[in-house]
Design a protein around this nucleic acid. Structure first.
Lengths: 153, 153
DNA sequence: ATGCAACCTCAAGATAACTTGAGGTCAAGA
DNA sequence: TCTTGACCTCAAGTTATCTTGAGGTTGCAT
């Protein structure tokens, strides 16, 4: 912004620049926009212009992805922020603690599965009726809209 | 088999029966066949007939899926067995130990990520250049044929 | 003024693991 | 014999996360 509060040319960056800064392909950035993760403004010639803070916003997306969040979940997190702002350190602390809890859960589930597997190694059973592992998994997941789809989440 | 060694009607089951026994949808069974996981024979009228042991084979697929193996990986495991037989308890012990190792790896990775996340919670940084979490993940995955696709595996 | 890299849109392709649907056949009981 | 449920094939749809390509436009440097 300049002294007048308006947006000057130097405050915004092109999609190519955002791509270069974040390592995310141009096509992916357009895709993120489509999914509501970014809301660039347009030039008179219809080209996208991003705020510098969008670099941080994309970083957030990348990091959250590493932690296993889907783009949809990430979008939800972002939309929870007041005024849909890009997460600041304080927001980040909130969100990352929530992520931590979800990682804890994943680890717990894997440990449980591992324990069951250890039993299975001993028994060698492969019976759907009796196998603890399968039954356990069954309770975990049967829900899947698409059948036996889930992968130990 | 009967005394003659030929396959009698009672040795085999229809796709519907296999579905009922395993809980796997008929369409999914056909799909598994297409992927090489099952190799039913056909009646004169072109209907599939499965061996009873295929129930166990499908159970194996389900369990392996729970452990995070893709159908492709499962097919590989099965094809390693002599004569492409359905895994018996001894085979199962081999395979499940290998799976155990892979679960161990996943847990390790998650723990690592969690540790990094804890650091991040403290620092509140969201800089791609500096964030340990992101850099770590980067080294783990950048490979992805499709860009930032991986999910903390 | 012009050239050309960078940008735009929209459609389609890729992968995993299946499902759904259309249109037709088989088999077993009444 | 007829009927009907179970089966068959093949094509297309689904979700997530993008990429690739075709065909056309912009904007900055010379």
């Amino acid at each position: 912004m300049n002294a007048m509060g308006s947006i000057s040319k130097d405050d915004v960056i092109s999609i190519g620049q955002l791509s270069a800064r974040t390592g995310v392909a141009v096509s992916a950035i357009r895709f993120y926009e489509e999914k509501g993760l970014l809301q660039p403004i347009r030039t008179s010639g219809n080209q996208r212009r991003f705020l510098r803070s969008d670099i941080r916003r994309v970083s957030f997306v990348l990091i959250a992805q590493r932690l296993g969040l889907s783009l949809h979940e990430i979008e939800e997190q972002l939309s929870l922020l007041p005024q849909g702002r890009t997460p600041n350190p304080r927001d980040w602390r909130q969100i990352s603690q929530q992520m931590r809890r979800s990682i804890d859960k994943k680890i717990e589930l894997l440990s449980l599965t591992r324990a069951k597997l250890d039993e299975c190694i001993g028994c060698g059973c492969l019976s759907l009726a009796k196998c603890q592992l399968y039954n356990k998994a069954d309770k975990m997941g049967a829900s899947g809209a698409t059948g036996p789809r889930l992968v130990l989440d």
